[in-house]
Design a protein around this nucleic acid. Sequence first.
DNA 1: CAAGTTACATACCGAATGGTATGTTGTCAA
DNA 2: TTGACAACATACCATTCGGTATGTAACTTG
Lengths: 210, 210
Amino acid sequence: MPRQSRRPPKTRDPERTRAEILAAAFPLVLRHGFQGVSIDDIVEQTRHTKGALFHQFPTKRELGYALVDEVVRPLIIERWIRPLEGFENPLEGILSQMEELIGKAPPELLKLGCPLNNLVQEMAPLDAGFRKRLQSALELWVTETERHLARAKAAGFLKKSVDTREAAHFIVMAHEGFYGMIKGLGHPHAFEALVNSLGIYFQAISTQEL
Amino acid sequence: MPRQSRRPPKTRDPERTRAEILAAAFPLVLRHGFQGVSIDDIVEQTRHTKGALFHQFPTKRELGYALVDEVVRPLIIERWIRPLEGFENPLEGILSQMEELIGKAPPELLKLGCPLNNLVQEMAPLDAGFRKRLQSALELWVTETERHLARAKAAGFLKKSVDTREAAHFIVMAHEGFYGMIKGLGHPHAFEALVNSLGIYFQAISTQEL
DNA sequence: CAAGTTACATACCGAATGGTATGTTGTCAA
DNA sequence: TTGACAACATACCATTCGGTATGTAACTTG
Protein backbone atom coordinates (compact mmCIF):
# COMPACT_ATOMS: atom_id res chain seq x y z
CA MET A 1 0.00 0.00 0.00
CA PRO A 2 1.30 3.46 -0.81
CA ARG A 3 2.34 5.24 2.34
CA GLN A 4 1.93 8.60 0.58
CA SER A 5 -1.81 8.76 0.06
CA ARG A 6 -3.24 11.17 -2.49
CA ARG A 7 -6.09 12.02 -0.12
CA PRO A 8 -5.41 14.02 3.03
CA PRO A 9 -4.67 11.84 6.02
CA LYS A 10 -6.85 11.90 9.08
CA THR A 11 -3.87 12.62 11.28
CA ARG A 12 -2.66 16.19 11.26
CA ASP A 13 0.91 17.32 10.81
CA PRO A 14 1.20 21.07 10.28
CA GLU A 15 4.97 21.06 9.85
CA ARG A 16 4.72 18.42 7.20
CA THR A 17 1.92 20.32 5.49
CA ARG A 18 4.05 23.42 5.43
CA ALA A 19 7.02 21.51 4.07
CA GLU A 20 4.91 19.85 1.38
CA ILE A 21 3.54 23.18 0.22
CA LEU A 22 7.03 24.63 -0.01
CA ALA A 23 8.23 21.55 -1.85
CA ALA A 24 5.42 21.91 -4.36
CA ALA A 25 5.98 25.64 -4.79
CA PHE A 26 9.71 25.40 -5.37
CA PRO A 27 9.79 23.76 -8.81
CA LEU A 28 6.85 25.84 -9.98
CA VAL A 29 8.57 29.07 -8.99
CA LEU A 30 11.80 27.83 -10.53
CA ARG A 31 10.02 27.27 -13.82
CA HIS A 32 7.56 30.14 -14.02
CA GLY A 33 8.94 32.75 -11.65
CA PHE A 34 7.33 33.89 -8.43
CA GLN A 35 4.91 36.26 -10.11
CA GLY A 36 4.16 33.73 -12.78
CA VAL A 37 2.90 31.11 -10.34
CA SER A 38 -0.55 31.37 -8.82
CA ILE A 39 -1.67 30.14 -5.43
CA ASP A 40 -4.03 27.77 -7.20
CA ASP A 41 -1.17 26.38 -9.26
CA ILE A 42 0.70 25.54 -6.10
CA VAL A 43 -2.29 24.06 -4.31
CA GLU A 44 -2.98 21.89 -7.32
CA GLN A 45 0.42 20.25 -6.91
CA THR A 46 -0.27 19.23 -3.33
CA ARG A 47 -2.77 17.04 -1.55
CA HIS A 48 -3.84 20.11 0.42
CA THR A 49 -6.20 22.98 -0.23
CA LYS A 50 -6.05 26.74 -0.48
CA GLY A 51 -7.30 26.93 3.09
CA ALA A 52 -4.31 24.99 4.33
CA LEU A 53 -1.94 27.17 2.36
CA PHE A 54 -3.32 30.41 3.69
CA HIS A 55 -3.37 28.94 7.15
CA GLN A 56 0.35 28.20 6.94
CA PHE A 57 1.28 31.36 5.05
CA PRO A 58 -0.65 34.57 5.66
CA THR A 59 0.12 35.83 2.15
CA LYS A 60 1.75 34.75 -1.07
CA ARG A 61 4.71 36.97 -0.33
CA GLU A 62 5.28 35.27 3.01
CA LEU A 63 5.35 31.96 1.16
CA GLY A 64 8.00 33.43 -1.10
CA TYR A 65 10.00 34.57 1.90
CA ALA A 66 9.84 31.09 3.39
CA LEU A 67 10.97 29.67 0.07
CA VAL A 68 14.11 31.79 0.23
CA ASP A 69 14.90 31.18 3.89
CA GLU A 70 13.92 27.55 4.19
CA VAL A 71 14.57 26.08 0.74
CA VAL A 72 16.95 28.16 -1.34
CA ARG A 73 19.33 29.13 1.42
CA PRO A 74 19.94 25.59 2.70
CA LEU A 75 20.30 24.44 -0.89
CA ILE A 76 23.24 26.78 -1.42
CA ILE A 77 25.04 25.43 1.60
CA GLU A 78 24.32 21.86 0.68
CA ARG A 79 25.32 22.15 -2.96
CA TRP A 80 28.12 24.69 -3.06
CA ILE A 81 29.67 24.94 0.39
CA ARG A 82 29.50 21.60 2.17
CA PRO A 83 31.07 19.64 -0.70
CA LEU A 84 34.15 21.86 -0.52
CA GLU A 85 35.01 20.36 2.84
CA GLY A 86 35.98 17.18 1.10
CA PHE A 87 38.73 18.87 -0.89
CA GLU A 88 42.20 19.66 0.31
CA ASN A 89 42.35 22.48 -2.25
CA PRO A 90 39.02 24.34 -2.28
CA LEU A 91 39.69 25.75 -5.76
CA GLU A 92 39.72 22.22 -7.10
CA GLY A 93 36.53 21.60 -5.16
CA ILE A 94 34.77 24.55 -6.73
CA LEU A 95 35.67 23.51 -10.28
CA SER A 96 34.79 19.90 -9.54
CA GLN A 97 31.44 20.83 -8.04
CA MET A 98 30.63 23.07 -10.97
CA GLU A 99 31.39 20.23 -13.33
CA GLU A 100 29.17 17.96 -11.25
CA LEU A 101 26.17 20.25 -10.72
CA ILE A 102 26.24 22.31 -13.91
CA GLY A 103 28.34 20.45 -16.46
CA LYS A 104 26.61 17.15 -15.89
CA ALA A 105 23.12 18.50 -15.20
CA PRO A 106 20.36 17.68 -17.68
CA PRO A 107 19.88 20.55 -20.15
CA GLU A 108 16.17 20.88 -19.42
CA LEU A 109 17.03 21.51 -15.78
CA LEU A 110 19.79 23.97 -16.62
CA LYS A 111 17.42 26.01 -18.73
CA LEU A 112 15.50 26.83 -15.57
CA GLY A 113 18.49 28.61 -14.13
CA CYS A 114 19.66 29.02 -10.56
CA PRO A 115 16.86 29.24 -7.97
CA LEU A 116 18.61 32.02 -6.09
CA ASN A 117 19.58 34.01 -9.14
CA ASN A 118 16.10 33.75 -10.61
CA LEU A 119 14.53 35.19 -7.49
CA VAL A 120 17.16 37.88 -7.19
CA GLN A 121 16.58 39.09 -10.73
CA GLU A 122 12.82 38.96 -10.46
CA MET A 123 12.02 40.06 -6.94
CA ALA A 124 14.91 42.01 -5.45
CA PRO A 125 13.97 45.39 -6.98
CA LEU A 126 10.28 44.87 -6.29
CA ASP A 127 10.00 43.97 -2.65
CA ALA A 128 12.06 44.88 0.37
CA GLY A 129 11.30 41.62 2.16
CA PHE A 130 12.63 39.58 -0.71
CA ARG A 131 15.55 41.93 -1.10
CA LYS A 132 16.62 41.51 2.50
CA ARG A 133 16.41 37.72 2.45
CA LEU A 134 18.04 37.26 -0.94
CA GLN A 135 20.83 39.59 0.05
CA SER A 136 21.35 37.60 3.21
CA ALA A 137 21.53 34.34 1.27
CA LEU A 138 24.03 35.78 -1.19
CA GLU A 139 26.20 37.17 1.58
CA LEU A 140 26.16 33.81 3.30
CA TRP A 141 27.37 32.20 0.09
CA VAL A 142 30.15 34.77 -0.25
CA THR A 143 31.19 34.49 3.38
CA GLU A 144 31.33 30.72 3.35
CA THR A 145 33.24 30.73 0.09
CA GLU A 146 35.70 33.17 1.59
CA ARG A 147 36.18 30.86 4.55
CA HIS A 148 37.33 28.13 2.21
CA LEU A 149 39.56 30.54 0.30
CA ALA A 150 41.18 31.57 3.55
CA ARG A 151 41.76 27.90 4.23
CA ALA A 152 43.30 27.55 0.77
CA LYS A 153 45.56 30.46 1.47
CA ALA A 154 46.65 29.06 4.82
CA ALA A 155 47.44 25.77 3.12
CA GLY A 156 49.61 27.55 0.57
CA PHE A 157 47.41 26.98 -2.46
CA LEU A 158 46.62 30.67 -2.87
CA LYS A 159 49.04 33.50 -3.44
CA LYS A 160 49.51 35.66 -0.37
CA SER A 161 48.55 38.74 -2.38
CA VAL A 162 45.03 37.46 -3.08
CA ASP A 163 42.17 39.31 -1.43
CA THR A 164 39.98 36.38 -0.39
CA ARG A 165 36.87 38.54 0.02
CA GLU A 166 37.25 39.90 -3.50
CA ALA A 167 37.86 36.46 -4.91
CA ALA A 168 34.84 35.05 -3.08
CA HIS A 169 32.63 37.72 -4.61
CA PHE A 170 33.99 36.92 -8.05
CA ILE A 171 33.44 33.19 -7.61
CA VAL A 172 29.85 33.55 -6.47
CA MET A 173 29.26 35.97 -9.31
CA ALA A 174 30.62 33.36 -11.69
CA HIS A 175 28.22 30.71 -10.39
CA GLU A 176 25.24 32.93 -11.01
CA GLY A 177 26.68 34.19 -14.24
CA PHE A 178 27.21 30.67 -15.53
CA TYR A 179 23.62 29.74 -14.84
CA GLY A 180 22.38 32.96 -16.38
CA MET A 181 24.49 32.61 -19.48
CA ILE A 182 23.48 29.00 -20.08
CA LYS A 183 19.86 29.91 -19.54
CA GLY A 184 20.14 32.80 -21.96
CA LEU A 185 21.93 30.87 -24.67
CA GLY A 186 19.44 28.05 -24.30
CA HIS A 187 21.99 25.28 -24.43
CA PRO A 188 24.66 24.14 -21.95
CA HIS A 189 27.30 24.20 -24.67
CA ALA A 190 28.88 27.37 -23.27
CA PHE A 191 29.66 25.75 -19.93
CA GLU A 192 32.99 24.31 -20.96
CA ALA A 193 34.13 27.67 -22.30
CA LEU A 194 33.13 29.41 -19.10
CA VAL A 195 34.72 26.89 -16.76
CA ASN A 196 37.92 26.95 -18.80
CA SER A 197 38.13 30.70 -18.42
CA LEU A 198 37.39 30.51 -14.73
CA GLY A 199 40.21 28.00 -14.54
CA ILE A 200 42.55 30.59 -16.02
CA TYR A 201 41.56 32.98 -13.26
CA PHE A 202 42.05 30.29 -10.64
CA GLN A 203 45.45 29.54 -12.08
CA ALA A 204 46.35 33.20 -11.86
CA ILE A 205 45.65 33.36 -8.14
CA SER A 206 47.20 29.97 -7.36
CA THR A 207 50.74 29.17 -6.31
CA GLN A 208 50.89 25.92 -8.23
CA GLU A 209 49.44 24.07 -11.21
CA LEU A 210 45.85 23.01 -10.65
CA MET B 1 5.57 76.61 -26.67
CA PRO B 2 6.28 72.97 -25.75
CA ARG B 3 6.78 70.95 -28.87
CA GLN B 4 5.92 67.76 -26.93
CA SER B 5 2.26 68.26 -26.15
CA ARG B 6 0.63 66.18 -23.41
CA ARG B 7 -2.49 65.81 -25.51
CA PRO B 8 -2.42 63.67 -28.62
CA PRO B 9 -1.56 65.68 -31.71
CA LYS B 10 -3.96 65.94 -34.62
CA THR B 11 -1.24 64.83 -36.98
CA ARG B 12 -0.58 61.12 -37.01
CA ASP B 13 2.78 59.46 -36.71
CA PRO B 14 2.49 55.71 -36.20
CA GLU B 15 6.22 55.12 -36.01
CA ARG B 16 6.53 57.73 -33.33
CA THR B 17 3.58 56.27 -31.46
CA ARG B 18 5.20 52.88 -31.54
CA ALA B 19 8.50 54.29 -30.38
CA GLU B 20 6.86 56.22 -27.55
CA ILE B 21 5.06 53.14 -26.31
CA LEU B 22 8.28 51.15 -26.33
CA ALA B 23 10.07 53.99 -24.57
CA ALA B 24 7.41 54.04 -21.87
CA ALA B 25 7.40 50.27 -21.49
CA PHE B 26 11.16 49.90 -21.18
CA PRO B 27 11.73 51.49 -17.74
CA LEU B 28 8.58 49.88 -16.38
CA VAL B 29 9.69 46.43 -17.47
CA LEU B 30 13.18 47.15 -16.16
CA ARG B 31 11.73 47.97 -12.76
CA HIS B 32 8.87 45.50 -12.40
CA GLY B 33 9.66 42.73 -14.82
CA PHE B 34 7.66 41.88 -17.92
CA GLN B 35 5.02 39.90 -16.10
CA GLY B 36 4.88 42.52 -13.39
CA VAL B 37 3.87 45.30 -15.74
CA SER B 38 0.33 45.58 -17.02
CA ILE B 39 -0.79 47.01 -20.33
CA ASP B 40 -2.62 49.70 -18.42
CA ASP B 41 0.55 50.62 -16.54
CA ILE B 42 2.32 51.18 -19.83
CA VAL B 43 -0.52 53.13 -21.42
CA GLU B 44 -0.66 55.35 -18.36
CA GLN B 45 2.91 56.44 -18.99
CA THR B 46 2.17 57.58 -22.53
CA ARG B 47 -0.07 60.16 -24.12
CA HIS B 48 -1.75 57.33 -26.02
CA THR B 49 -4.47 54.85 -25.21
CA LYS B 50 -4.88 51.12 -24.97
CA GLY B 51 -6.39 51.16 -28.44
CA ALA B 52 -3.22 52.63 -29.87
CA LEU B 53 -1.10 50.09 -28.08
CA PHE B 54 -3.05 47.10 -29.32
CA HIS B 55 -3.08 48.60 -32.77
CA GLN B 56 0.71 48.76 -32.80
CA PHE B 57 1.24 45.46 -30.98
CA PRO B 58 -1.21 42.60 -31.47
CA THR B 59 -0.42 41.21 -28.02
CA LYS B 60 1.56 41.97 -24.90
CA ARG B 61 4.09 39.32 -25.85
CA GLU B 62 4.70 40.97 -29.20
CA LEU B 63 5.39 44.20 -27.37
CA GLY B 64 7.93 42.31 -25.30
CA TYR B 65 9.53 40.88 -28.43
CA ALA B 66 9.82 44.37 -29.90
CA LEU B 67 11.38 45.55 -26.67
CA VAL B 68 14.12 42.96 -27.04
CA ASP B 69 14.74 43.48 -30.73
CA GLU B 70 14.34 47.22 -30.98
CA VAL B 71 15.44 48.54 -27.61
CA VAL B 72 17.59 46.08 -25.68
CA ARG B 73 19.59 44.78 -28.61
CA PRO B 74 20.66 48.19 -29.92
CA LEU B 75 21.46 49.23 -26.38
CA ILE B 76 24.02 46.44 -26.05
CA ILE B 77 25.78 47.51 -29.19
CA GLU B 78 25.70 51.16 -28.26
CA ARG B 79 26.91 50.68 -24.68
CA TRP B 80 29.26 47.73 -24.78
CA ILE B 81 30.50 47.25 -28.33
CA ARG B 82 30.76 50.60 -30.11
CA PRO B 83 32.82 52.25 -27.35
CA LEU B 84 35.49 49.56 -27.75
CA GLU B 85 36.35 50.92 -31.16
CA GLY B 86 37.94 53.91 -29.50
CA PHE B 87 40.51 51.76 -27.70
CA GLU B 88 43.71 50.45 -29.14
CA ASN B 89 43.57 47.63 -26.59
CA PRO B 90 39.99 46.32 -26.32
CA LEU B 91 40.66 44.80 -22.89
CA GLU B 92 41.34 48.26 -21.57
CA GLY B 93 38.18 49.41 -23.27
CA ILE B 94 36.08 46.77 -21.57
CA LEU B 95 37.37 47.62 -18.11
CA SER B 96 37.04 51.32 -18.79
CA GLN B 97 33.49 50.96 -20.06
CA MET B 98 32.52 48.85 -17.07
CA GLU B 99 33.88 51.53 -14.77
CA GLU B 100 31.93 54.14 -16.70
CA LEU B 101 28.57 52.37 -17.02
CA ILE B 102 28.52 50.31 -13.83
CA GLY B 103 31.05 51.79 -11.44
CA LYS B 104 29.84 55.34 -11.92
CA ALA B 105 26.15 54.56 -12.36
CA PRO B 106 23.73 55.79 -9.70
CA PRO B 107 22.95 52.99 -7.20
CA GLU B 108 19.20 53.28 -7.67
CA LEU B 109 19.70 52.55 -11.36
CA LEU B 110 22.08 49.67 -10.69
CA LYS B 111 19.57 48.01 -8.39
CA LEU B 112 17.32 47.52 -11.40
CA GLY B 113 19.88 45.30 -13.06
CA CYS B 114 20.74 44.73 -16.70
CA PRO B 115 17.77 44.98 -19.08
CA LEU B 116 18.92 41.97 -21.07
CA ASN B 117 19.77 39.82 -18.07
CA ASN B 118 16.48 40.61 -16.37
CA LEU B 119 14.50 39.48 -19.36
CA VAL B 120 16.65 36.40 -19.85
CA GLN B 121 16.12 35.26 -16.28
CA GLU B 122 12.43 35.99 -16.28
CA MET B 123 11.22 35.06 -19.74
CA ALA B 124 13.65 32.67 -21.41
CA PRO B 125 12.28 29.50 -19.81
CA LEU B 126 8.68 30.60 -20.27
CA ASP B 127 8.34 31.56 -23.87
CA ALA B 128 10.02 30.36 -27.03
CA GLY B 129 9.67 33.71 -28.77
CA PHE B 130 11.49 35.49 -25.99
CA ARG B 131 14.03 32.71 -25.80
CA LYS B 132 14.90 32.99 -29.48
CA ARG B 133 15.29 36.77 -29.41
CA LEU B 134 17.19 36.93 -26.13
CA GLN B 135 19.49 34.19 -27.32
CA SER B 136 20.12 36.11 -30.51
CA ALA B 137 20.93 39.28 -28.59
CA LEU B 138 23.33 37.42 -26.32
CA GLU B 139 25.05 35.74 -29.23
CA LEU B 140 25.43 39.07 -30.96
CA TRP B 141 27.10 40.44 -27.84
CA VAL B 142 29.45 37.46 -27.69
CA THR B 143 30.27 37.60 -31.38
CA GLU B 144 31.01 41.30 -31.37
CA THR B 145 33.12 40.95 -28.24
CA GLU B 146 35.04 38.17 -29.91
CA ARG B 147 35.68 40.40 -32.92
CA HIS B 148 37.42 42.87 -30.66
CA LEU B 149 39.35 40.12 -28.90
CA ALA B 150 40.55 38.88 -32.25
CA ARG B 151 41.68 42.40 -33.00
CA ALA B 152 43.49 42.48 -29.64
CA LYS B 153 45.20 39.24 -30.50
CA ALA B 154 46.26 40.46 -33.91
CA ALA B 155 47.69 43.58 -32.29
CA GLY B 156 49.69 41.45 -29.91
CA PHE B 157 47.84 42.34 -26.72
CA LEU B 158 46.49 38.83 -26.22
CA LYS B 159 48.45 35.63 -25.82
CA LYS B 160 48.37 33.43 -28.91
CA SER B 161 47.05 30.56 -26.83
CA VAL B 162 43.85 32.38 -25.89
CA ASP B 163 40.62 31.03 -27.32
CA THR B 164 38.86 34.27 -28.21
CA ARG B 165 35.43 32.66 -28.39
CA GLU B 166 35.82 31.22 -24.91
CA ALA B 167 37.07 34.51 -23.55
CA ALA B 168 34.20 36.40 -25.17
CA HIS B 169 31.70 34.11 -23.48
CA PHE B 170 33.40 34.66 -20.16
CA ILE B 171 33.42 38.43 -20.57
CA VAL B 172 29.75 38.66 -21.47
CA MET B 173 28.97 36.34 -18.58
CA ALA B 174 30.89 38.68 -16.31
CA HIS B 175 28.87 41.70 -17.46
CA GLU B 176 25.63 39.99 -16.63
CA GLY B 177 27.05 38.47 -13.48
CA PHE B 178 28.23 41.87 -12.26
CA TYR B 179 24.80 43.35 -12.71
CA GLY B 180 23.15 40.39 -11.07
CA MET B 181 25.50 40.37 -8.12
CA ILE B 182 25.13 44.09 -7.47
CA LYS B 183 21.38 43.77 -7.77
CA GLY B 184 21.35 40.87 -5.35
CA LEU B 185 23.61 42.46 -2.78
CA GLY B 186 21.60 45.66 -3.01
CA HIS B 187 24.58 48.00 -3.02
CA PRO B 188 27.20 48.70 -5.70
CA HIS B 189 29.97 48.19 -3.19
CA ALA B 190 30.92 44.83 -4.68
CA PHE B 191 31.73 46.31 -8.07
CA GLU B 192 35.31 47.19 -7.27
CA ALA B 193 35.97 43.70 -6.00
CA LEU B 194 34.50 42.16 -9.12
CA VAL B 195 36.31 44.38 -11.56
CA ASN B 196 39.60 43.81 -9.76
CA SER B 197 39.18 40.06 -10.13
CA LEU B 198 38.24 40.40 -13.76
CA GLY B 199 41.40 42.44 -14.15
CA ILE B 200 43.40 39.49 -12.82
CA TYR B 201 41.82 37.30 -15.49
CA PHE B 202 42.58 39.90 -18.16
CA GLN B 203 46.15 40.08 -16.97
CA ALA B 204 46.42 36.31 -17.22
CA ILE B 205 45.47 36.30 -20.89
CA SER B 206 47.48 39.40 -21.80
CA THR B 207 51.02 39.62 -23.10
CA GLN B 208 51.85 42.80 -21.20
CA GLU B 209 50.92 44.85 -18.13
CA LEU B 210 47.52 46.48 -18.44
C1' DC C 1 -13.94 65.12 -53.70
C1' DA C 2 -15.44 60.39 -52.69
C1' DA C 3 -14.36 56.14 -50.87
C1' DG C 4 -11.57 53.24 -48.56
C1' DT C 5 -8.09 52.40 -45.17
C1' DT C 6 -5.11 53.30 -41.31
C1' DA C 7 -4.64 54.89 -36.73
C1' DC C 8 -6.29 55.52 -33.16
C1' DA C 9 -10.12 56.35 -28.71
C1' DT C 10 -13.66 54.42 -25.58
C1' DA C 11 -16.25 51.11 -23.38
C1' DC C 12 -16.57 46.77 -22.17
C1' DC C 13 -15.72 41.56 -21.09
C1' DG C 14 -14.49 36.88 -19.46
C1' DA C 15 -11.02 34.72 -17.02
C1' DA C 16 -7.68 34.50 -13.56
C1' DT C 17 -5.88 36.01 -9.20
C1' DG C 18 -4.92 36.86 -4.28
C1' DG C 19 -7.47 36.76 -0.53
C1' DT C 20 -11.52 35.96 2.85
C1' DA C 21 -15.61 34.24 5.32
C1' DT C 22 -17.35 30.49 7.19
C1' DG C 23 -18.00 25.78 8.15
C1' DT C 24 -15.87 21.31 9.84
C1' DT C 25 -12.84 18.13 12.11
C1' DG C 26 -8.83 16.49 14.52
C1' DT C 27 -6.16 17.31 18.94
C1' DC C 28 -5.32 18.07 23.53
C1' DA C 29 -5.51 20.08 28.16
C1' DA C 30 -8.38 20.08 32.18
C1' DT D 1 -15.78 13.62 28.68
C1' DT D 2 -15.75 18.07 27.13
C1' DG D 3 -14.95 22.41 25.67
C1' DA D 4 -11.46 25.20 23.22
C1' DC D 5 -8.45 25.95 19.85
C1' DA D 6 -5.56 24.76 15.92
C1' DA D 7 -5.70 22.92 11.37
C1' DC D 8 -7.64 22.59 7.87
C1' DA D 9 -11.81 22.42 3.69
C1' DT D 10 -15.19 24.88 0.75
C1' DA D 11 -17.40 28.52 -1.29
C1' DC D 12 -17.15 32.86 -2.53
C1' DC D 13 -15.57 37.76 -3.71
C1' DA D 14 -13.44 42.16 -5.43
C1' DT D 15 -10.01 43.40 -8.32
C1' DT D 16 -6.98 43.14 -12.04
C1' DC D 17 -5.59 41.65 -16.35
C1' DG D 18 -5.05 40.88 -21.31
C1' DG D 19 -7.81 41.41 -24.90
C1' DT D 20 -11.91 42.88 -27.96
C1' DA D 21 -15.89 45.28 -30.11
C1' DT D 22 -17.10 49.30 -31.91
C1' DG D 23 -16.98 54.02 -33.04
C1' DT D 24 -14.48 57.97 -35.16
C1' DA D 25 -11.18 61.01 -37.10
C1' DA D 26 -7.05 61.48 -39.97
C1' DC D 27 -4.75 60.14 -44.12
C1' DT D 28 -4.33 58.09 -48.79
C1' DT D 29 -5.75 57.02 -53.31
C1' DG D 30 -8.27 57.15 -57.49
